[in-house]
Nucleic acid binder design. Structure first.
Length: 261
DNA sequence: ATGCCTAAGCCCCTTAGA
């Protein structure tokens, strides 16, 4: 069973590329981020035509997440992260969607970027990460096969980026961002791509600017965290890198992992 | 120190992304 995640940067602008990728790589579950579409505009029927059923949480202009499954409708288990305290402000960003597919719990996340830092956007990122951790602890306690996949907007290690110095001031690399990510791993979650590539040097994102793709100036921010029930069955993980080089590509490449039946 | 691209809105510039 293959589960994939793809920050597509606009579901409508990217639709031909997205359909092509689904048909060519045929993941059982595909989690999408940065759909950038309101609920009404989500092209569900295009996915139906190629055999994928979808649930989605849209928003005007920005954010937006979706879960697609091959031949079966995802059973939604949550949309949006819970508040930590009742007094916390409402969070209207569409960044979290969770479902069950064939007995596997899958959470699709689009974690806030947090730039510029310091500032309110960075504070929002760190607060969001705390809420994510709380939800992941609930998922952990279910003791079911579970994957939390998506754009984490965190570069975990210096060897997850082409030039650490170039990104040193970026929110993606701040110690507080990394610490929050490491706390998730500390809870026991397995970083699937890292496990398969422990020495780093694997990128999932290349900026549109400054010829970053041509120069291979990328970094790894799309992650797939697995509960032990899934990590024990992990057989492969990778990046569909060549999709980044195609016409009208997203600035992210799809990532995926495979588990034994 | 800044822009380099790209998408979307309601729109020919601004906002946001990472």
């Amino acid at each position: 069973m293959k589960i994939a995640s793809f920050n597509i940067n606009g579901v409508k602008a990217r639709l031909p590329r997205l359909l092509e990728w689904l048909v060519e790589t045929r993941p059982k579950v595909a989690c999408l981020q940065e759909v950038k579409s309101q609920d009404e505009g989500f092209p569900a029927e295009e996915f139906e035509k190629i055999g994928y059923h979808a649930i989605w949480h849209g928003q005007k202009s920005f954010n937006g997440v979706a879960i697609l499954a091959d031949g079966v409708k995802p059973i939604e288990t949550r949309r949006g992260l819970p508040k930590l305290n009742d007094s916390d402000p409402d969070d209207d960003h569409a960044r979290y969607l969770e479902a069950e597919v064939d007995g596997v719990r899958v959470a699709c996340i689009y974690l806030p970027n947090g730039n510029p830092q310091p500032g309110p956007k960075f504070d929002y990122k760190l607060a969001w990460m705390e809420r994510l951790r709380a939800r992941m602890r609930e998922l952990w306690a279910l003791e079911v096969p579970c994957a939390v996949v998506g754009d984490y907007n965190v570069i975990p290690h210096d060897n997850d980026v082409w030039a650490p110095k170039a990104m040193a001031d970026d929110a993606l690399m701040q110690p507080a961002s990394r610490d929050a990510y490491m706390r998730l791993l500390g809870d026991g979650w397995t970083d699937a791509l890292r496990t398969m590539n422990p020495r780093g040097g694997v990128w999932t994102y290349w900026d549109y600017q400054a010829g970053a793709w041509q120069r291979d100036h990328g970094f790894r921010i799309d992650h797939m965290l697995l509960s032990p029930e899934l990590a024990d069955r992990l057989v492969a993980a990778g990046v569909d890198k060549d999709y980044r080089g195609r016409e009208k590509a997203s600035d992210h490449a799809p990532v995926w992992f495979e588990i034994s039946a």
